[in-house]
């Protein structure tokens, strides 16, 4: 009987080895190892054997079963991995084809610059304020030390509206609103849309964006202003910048400055961008005029401050080398999708 078991096992092993697929092998398994399979038949015959024969036959039977199951498992795993491999090999996908569906839209470059600069200022403790686009003559001019009939009003060609109001010509009116709201000491910026009555051409717009900045505290000096501007501009341009101040006239500051930065194209040696001067005019600034502090409800004997105006539109044009300002408000997606 042992010999028969061994012969059966050997034949079954050969058939397993020869099986071409999982189904053929499964047929062998059912035939040999199944509940009604041939090995089970041997099991039924065991009772007729003597006790000693039964032990040997039992061993043979178990040995055959174990080796057959092991052979089945190995072969089965081989079949499965071959099948998996076959599936994977059939699943080539062209990953260079762009995915269907939406591509994200773009933020307007002015929004991007504004966000960047706002977070820079926020990190330095500045509050971000908003002000109205339609302003009173008081906030846009009088409170900023520009009385009626002051020729400085000609410096900013103004859009006048019905009802005696105007479109703010700069973000500076937020200085007074900010001082009133926050009280000294204070640090604030006010970015926003401003308007000038100017003919539009590649470098002039009647609608553009500025950022007003102001710091009021005890004993604020020109040296502080210089330090702050240098730090700020290094943050904006992400490199060390050299700045210089020269006299500039703005009625709401005294003294008033034009701040130039060393030309980043030529490093100060002189080139067409800086008109051979080595410097590029960047922003107006100055120490806050006592009259403006007073208009904001702050005592100039106790507090002083500095203020500056940053041209966001100009900054955008510098950063992206945009040669025509009119693109910014064109609503043309061929332009806007680039950002």
């Amino acid at each position: 009987m042992i010999a028969e078991i061994e012969a059966l096992a050997s034949a079954a092993l050969s058939r397993i080895a020869a099986a071409a697929n999982l189904d053929e092998m499964e047929a062998v398994r059912v035939e040999v190892l199944g509940r009604k399979g041939t090995l089970a038949e041997f099991g039924k015959l065991m009772g007729k054997l003597s006790a000693s024969e039964r032990v040997d036959a039992g061993k043979a039977l178990n040995g055959a079963k174990t080796s057959l199951e092991a052979a089945f498992d190995i072969k089965k795993t081989a079949f499965e991995s071959a099948a998996l491999n076959e599936r994977l090999q059939s699943e080539w996908l062209d990953l260079t084809i762009p995915p269907p569906g939406l591509t994200p839209g773009s933020l307007h470059p002015l929004t991007q610059i504004q966000n960047e600069i706002e977070s820079l200022f926020f990190s330095m403790g500045f509050t971000i304020l908003d002000g109205p686009e339609v302003e009173t003559e008081f906030h846009n001019f009088d409170a900023l030390n520009i009385p009626a009939d002051h020729p400085a009003r000609d410096m900013q060609d103004t859009f006048w509206l019905e009802g005696g109001h105007l479109l703010r010509t700069h973000t500076s009116p937020v200085q007074v609103r900010g001082m009133m709201r926050l009280g000294p000491p204070l640090r604030m910026i006010a970015p926003g849309r401003v308007f000038r009555n100017e003919e539009v051409d590649p470098s002039h717009e009647h609608t553009f964006y500025q950022l007003e900045g102001m710091m009021v505290d005890r004993d604020v000096s020109i040296a502080n202003l210089l330090y702050f501007m240098k730090t700020l501009l290094s943050g904006i341009f992400k490199r060390d910048t050299t700045v210089r101040l020269r006299p500039g006239f703005f009625p709401f500051v005294e003294p008033g400055f034009e701040l130039d930065i060393e030309c980043m194209v030529c490093g100060g040696a002189g080139c067409p961008v800086c008109k051979q001067s080595g410097w590029v005019e960047l922003l107006p600034c100055g120490l806050v005029h006592p009259n403006v502090l007073r208009a904001g409800g702050i005592d100039p004997a106790e507090f002083g401050g500095f203020a500056f105006g940053l041209g966001l539109t100009r900054l955008v044009m510098m950063r992206y080398l945009i040669d025509d300002i009119r693109w910014l408000q064109s609503g043309d997606l061929r332009f806007l999708k680039q950002f």
Partner: peptide
């Protein structure tokens, strides 16, 4: 103004609104 050296302003450390 080139003869004025930048000096850090003394500012209180407060989180802005």
């Amino acid at each position: 103004y080139a003869t004025i050296a930048p000096i850090a302003p003394a500012m209180p450390v407060v989180p802005p609104p």
